[in-house]
Design a protein around this nucleic acid. Sequence first.
DNA 1: AAAGAACCTTAACCTAGATTAAGGTTTTTA
DNA 2: TAAAAACCTTAATCTAGGTTAAGGTTCTTT
Lengths: 201, 201
Amino acid sequence: MTLPDLIPSNIAPLIEHFKDYLPMDADDMAMLLPRVSERQIKRRQFILQEGDVCQHYNFVVRGCFKIYKVDEKGGEHNIQFVTENDWATDIGSFHAEKPSELYIEAIEPAHILQIKRPDLLFLYVNNPKFDRNFRVIIENKFVELQNRLLQSFCESATERYLKFLEQYPELSQRLPNTQIASYLGITPEFLSKIRKDLVSK
Amino acid sequence: MTLPDLIPSNIAPLIEHFKDYLPMDADDMAMLLPRVSERQIKRRQFILQEGDVCQHYNFVVRGCFKIYKVDEKGGEHNIQFVTENDWATDIGSFHAEKPSELYIEAIEPAHILQIKRPDLLFLYVNNPKFDRNFRVIIENKFVELQNRLLQSFCESATERYLKFLEQYPELSQRLPNTQIASYLGITPEFLSKIRKDLVSK
DNA sequence: AAAGAACCTTAACCTAGATTAAGGTTTTTA
DNA sequence: TAAAAACCTTAATCTAGGTTAAGGTTCTTT
């Protein structure tokens, strides 16, 4: 539980995150530590913009981000919210080193830990624990995304909204309804109507 | 390119698939070989049904599968087609050992290679190459799924259909339009209308 | 070779959710 | 602390795509 003294405590949440998957010994931490850098992000600040190559795996220590795409007509579509102890990255852009189609923007002031591409590759090549950890992390992300697709195919907007409230009760307090509507794939006006209809029942 | 004589050639496509990610030596193959079993699947046969726990990672050597969910009203929604040299598995059900919400059904007679859960876990624990390979495989699947979600959010049915034809020209020959419509998230009747409108332009 | 099943298309009508517009409230920023 | 920006709601109108129904065609199975 307590970390060796030589590990600065501000990277502790990331170490704890990895420990959810596999035990991390002092050597593993020593390998990770010099490859992680901290950053404070202001509200409305971007850590990725359309057209840029995603250069980092970003671990959120505190705060909240939205990952979204802007369509031809300028509409924003949230594909994911990322909060404490989760990763905010465009995996496709990161690995293929291709320009991203996505924006990643802080909805709240945030504190993140970043790992650069060459550093992550170093970790993969030199310590199989990182391959393992990220395999499992991405499996979980895949399942989350698949459930999202299934919901958007199989359920009405009202059902999706109710399940969102149930599944992310904390997020639904933290976020403005505009952002939730964008995540659900509907307009804020229609969400407003859904909320009225739910109350009147 | 040529495999050692002791490896039966009918597992060759899987070995080649792994070689796309990392070199495989004789020891790796010797570890893999006894943990893979072959199966012939008939058209319309299921390798996974709703309610069952997904027990295998299924590698498709030949044929085509659809992975779909059935909604409350009995409607089918294809989330993915799987053809040669790809994996047909419900990753969520497999790893959590929970009943699946999905069906995986052969659209064409198929030949698959299966790895059981305990065998895959053995490979993960005893040879880090498998963690690596499946990390990369799932990263790619994640990106594919994310693009699908983005398209369904940002584009009209007509645009989605045109991109499908472009991205999977071979599949669009192989599949009936009913199945393509279900993948695009529209009814066969509406796809028929889209096709008519496209021709008349 | 025939019967049944799956598939494709057209067309009339229907609905979930979008759009536009407007007024009020809360939050942010200068 | 005031102006600007973001947010929320309501209501009228509009539209992409669904539903129902029906007829024709092409596979599959016996």
